[in-house]
Amino acid sequence: MVYTLALYVHLCALFAAFAASALTHFGEARMARARDGAEVAEWLRFVRGVAVTFPLAILVLVASGSYMVSAASISWESGWLVASLAGVGVLALSGPLVIGARMRRLGQALAAGDRAEALRLGGDPVMRCAAWGNTGLALGIAFLMVARPPLAVSVAVLAAGWLLGVAVARPLRKPEAATA
């Protein structure tokens, strides 16, 4: 019964992370299409509000997953598990270090009243690629939890997931550029 509850909590955290991911992608797309600093600021607040879900989801995923690995006597050296934990580490670092840092720069530009810089950073391709890369990586980790392949295959799955995520992040055009 405890294992079943841990699995349920694990899946709920996964669903919460993917829902937050979808909402942040929506907010980032709206920031990229913003016409003025006020609109960028509005969508930045939205994205930041949703993004608080990620650290909590990661903690719950790792805690519940750790319990399930131990309860099921799965080797901590299993290739899929090692790759999944490395992927979670990448997610935990790229969120605050890449995406968070870019959002802080955007917030500083807004606070300074630098409209041009805020509009430019609102459509920052690095932030968008990192966010979509994280989503692809997370989908790869979810696949590894189900398929449990060996290490080499697991690493390839995570790399492919990240690359597909980045490919989805194709540059978004501002409305002005679309009519020009």
Rank of each mutant, 00 (worst) to 15 (best):
P171A: 11
S66G: 15
V62P: 04
L23P: 01
L110C: 08
G27V: 03
C129S: 14
L119G: 01
A32N: 04
L14I: 13
L59K: 14
L85Q: 01
C129D: 12
F18T: 05
A22K: 00
G87Q: 06
A32L: 06
W132S: 07
V153S: 05
G95P: 07
L5I: 14
A57W: 03
V157S: 01
G122E: 08
R120W: 03
Y67H: 11
G113R: 13
V157C: 04
V52E: 02
I74M: 15
L44H: 06
V2S: 12
R35W: 01
L5M: 12
V153G: 01
G133P: 00
P55T: 10
S78G: 10
S66M: 14
L81E: 01
T53Q: 05
A57N: 05
F54M: 04
M31E: 01
D114Y: 11
A57H: 03
T179L: 12
A71W: 03
T179Q: 10
L158V: 08
K174N: 06
L91A: 03
A101I: 04
G140S: 04
A131R: 02
A169D: 09
R115H: 11
A130E: 03
G122I: 10
P175G: 04
S94N: 13
Y8V: 15
R128D: 05
F26L: 14
G161F: 03
R30K: 09
A41H: 08
V166I: 13
E28G: 11
V146F: 14
V40S: 00
L7I: 11
L172D: 02
A86N: 07
A101D: 07
A72R: 15
N134M: 11
E77C: 00
